[in-house]
């Protein structure tokens, strides 16, 4: 199939960017979206032009490195699918496709489709951890955890930190990401040591990074490739006031 792509090109963090139009020919429907971009880049290189920079690593939907807004939707039109797992059979011959980077003040564009997600790392550093004893490994079943709690923690832990929730949110809010981390650790006995301060510390860091506030549009959970539920956001809202009035931060 033949496609017309409108891709955001920006040569560096402070450079002025713009959408540029490219035509790609003979795209196979079996290619992944990133492979299609690889083909475009080969083409650009042979013509002596600068290839389109985009992030990727595992290309199997588990690392959270890839990410671009495809036709107005982070990771593209499919639900629960990362850009690397999106295949060209989703598109048809003659389609026009807009490809843009995540847009958020806290995710500055480094180049073309690559953004700096260091703000997520700084949020994690504020509370995305648990205290454990070092030394011998504990007996596997020493801590009883109900199946329901284990499942809930697992649901939240599925977050791969891609940032699609921020990209989808009209307010560039990082509530879903942060709530997934707070909800994951808060659901488990091992996470209780820091429970009373975790939400507080991570949320204040999120604000400091310049992410917006949640207005409950639920665009995040619809865009999340891992289907993280906005229920975790409600849980974090509760944990936050609990910290505010009962925490020992």
């Amino acid at each position: 199939m033949n496609l017309r792509l409108h891709i955001w090109r920006q040569s560096g963090p402070d450079a002025q960017g713009m959408l540029k139009t490219y035509d790609v020919q003979n795209v196979s429907e079996h290619m992944s979206f990133l492979e299609m971009l690889d083909v475009l880049n080969e083409d650009l290189l042979t013509k002596g032009e600068i290839p389109v920079a985009f992030d990727h690593d595992c290309r199997e939907g588990i690392c959270g490195t890839c990410g671009m807004v495809i036709n107005g939707r982070p990771h593209g039109p499919l639900v629960r699918t990362t850009a690397c797992q999106l295949h060209m059979r989703t598109f048809k011959d003659g389609d026009e496709i807009y490809i843009e980077p995540w847009r958020a003040r806290a995710f500055p564009v480094m180049r073309d489709l690559i953004v700096d997600r260091g703000s997520f790392d700084r949020i994690i550093q504020k509370g995305g951890f648990v205290s454990v004893n070092t030394g011998n490994a504990q007996d596997g079943n020493a801590i009883p955890i109900s199946k329901k709690d284990a499942d809930r923690a697992m649901d939240a832990a599925a977050c791969i930190g891609c940032g699609a929730c921020v990209a989808a949110c009209p307010n560039s809010s990082a509530m879903l990401f942060t709530a997934a981390k707070v909800g994951h650790l808060g659901s488990l006995p091992q996470g209780q040591t820091e429970r009373s301060t975790r939400a507080m510390n991570m949320v204040l860091q999120m604000d400091a990074e310049g992410f917006g506030a949640c207005t409950n549009h639920y665009e995040c959970e619809a865009a999340c490739p891992k289907g993280i539920s906005a229920e975790f956001i409600a849980q974090m809202n509760k944990d936050f006031v609990a910290s505010a009035f009962g925490g020992r931060d």
Partner: peptide, 26 residues
């Protein structure tokens, strides 16, 4: 909050395709 939310996205998208937000919520 509305001012902060606007400041959180200095550059808007050329194309946005909402999924769950509504006229009321926006």
């Amino acid at each position: 909050l509305s001012r902060r939310n606007r400041a959180a996205r200095p550059q808007s998208y050329a194309k946005v395709t909402p999924r769950k937000s509504t006229v009321a919520s926006r």
